[in-house]
Design a protein around this nucleic acid. Sequence first.
DNA 1: TAGATTGTTAATCGATTAACAATC
DNA 2: TAGATTGTTAATCGATTAACAATC
Lengths: 210, 210
Amino acid sequence: MEEKEISQAVVSRLPRYFRYLGELKDEGIERVSSQELSDIMRVTASQIRQDLNNFGGFGQQGYGYNVGYLYDEIGKILGLNKEHRLIIIGAGHLGQALVNYMNFERRGFIFKGIFDIDTQLHGTQIRGIAVRPMQEMEQFVRENDIDIAVLTIPKSSAIEIAEQLVSYGIKGIWNFAHVDLHVPKGVQVENVHLSDSLMKLSYNLVSRKG
Amino acid sequence: MEEKEISQAVVSRLPRYFRYLGELKDEGIERVSSQELSDIMRVTASQIRQDLNNFGGFGQQGYGYNVGYLYDEIGKILGLNKEHRLIIIGAGHLGQALVNYMNFERRGFIFKGIFDIDTQLHGTQIRGIAVRPMQEMEQFVRENDIDIAVLTIPKSSAIEIAEQLVSYGIKGIWNFAHVDLHVPKGVQVENVHLSDSLMKLSYNLVSRKG
DNA sequence: TAGATTGTTAATCGATTAACAATC
DNA sequence: TAGATTGTTAATCGATTAACAATC
C-alpha cells in the first residue's frame, strides 16, 4: 500500500478535496466530473484527475466520479477511518481551543489527555478531560496507546518535551511551538507556525500583490 | 518596489530565515555564510542565496552575510517595520489565544478590537481590549484604520462577514474558518485550516512515510 | 452507437540545485 | 595576493497542464 511515494504537494490538497466532496454530498449530489469540481474549487480539472490517480482509478469514463464513494475513499486515504488518540501538552488558550473544537472528534481524533506544568490546573477539567501533571505523561502515553501529541507550549520547552514524547512511543507530533523539531525516522511532525502565517500575510499586504 | 513577482514558495520561507537569523543575532553571532545557515536550517545553501537575491544582494563575497543587517532587511521585506492594526471577529478560545499571544504585538501586529455575536461577552475585556457587538464593526474599522481582520468564527458565517469586512476597506484577512474565501483583487487572504493540517498529519501517519 | 469523461502519456512550466565567474 | 563566498547563469528535477486514446 505504498508503491510510489506521494508528494506532499498532493497530500496537502487531499483535505480540500475531502471538504468539497463532503459539501456536495450534503447537498445530495451524487456524481461530479473533474470539470465540475474544477469550476467549484478553482483548480484545473487535469490536476484533480492527476491527484486522484495517484491513489487509484476512482472515476468512470463518460460518467465522472461518484461523490459519496470518492468522499469515503479520500477519507480512508487520509486515515480518517482509523481512530487517532491524542494528548495535548499545554492547557493554555490554544490547547483549550483545540480540545473544544468538536469537529476533530467527529473525524476520529480523540483527545484522551491534557498535560500542563501549572500545578494550579491539575485536576481541573476541559470538556470532561482532566488536566494532568507532566510527570504522568509517560505512563499515560503507554497505557492509553496515544499516537499523536499536540504541542501548545512555548518554544523554550518544546524540543525537550518532543524528545521525551518520541521516547515514549509517540508517532505523530502536531507542533504549534515556534521551533523546528528534529525527530527520528518514522515519527511525523506537522507544524502550525502561526506567526509565520501572519508574516506571510503581512508580506503580501506590503508588497501590494494582486 | 515590485519589479518581478516573488513566488509564494519563496515568501513562505522568509519567516523561517527571519527566525533563524534572530536566534543567531541573540547568540551574538555577527556573520554567517550561506553554507553555515544551510547546515543549521537544513536547506541548501544554493536555495538560501537564490531566495535572498530575489530581494537584493545582502551579502558580500568572501565574507558572507551580516546577521543583524540581514535580519533587519528581511524584517522590512516582511513588512514588520510597519504597524498593522488588527481586529478579531470571534472571541472564542482561539480568538482569545491569539489576542493573548504577545509575540504578535512585538512584531507590530496590534490588536485594536474584538467582536462577537454573543451579547453576554459585550463589554467584557480580553487583555484590556473590549469585546464589541458586530454592529459596531463598520464604524470601528473605518475610524481605527484597521488593515487586518482575523476570522475565528464558524464557517457558516465566515463568507458573509468577510464580504462585509472587505466592503469596509479591510485589506488582509487571516482566516481560521474552514472555508475558502473569495475576495476582490487587492485583498489578501491567508488561511489557517487547522483540520487540513491535522488530516495531513494523519495521512503521513497511516502511509508510514519515512 | 454516439457522447462524455476518465486515466495516462507527453509537453510545459516553474522551482531547486549545481557550477562557476565575479569580487570582496 | 590568495582564499572564501557571494551573485548569477545553466542544468536538473519535479510539478502542473495539455492532449488524447481508452472506455464507460
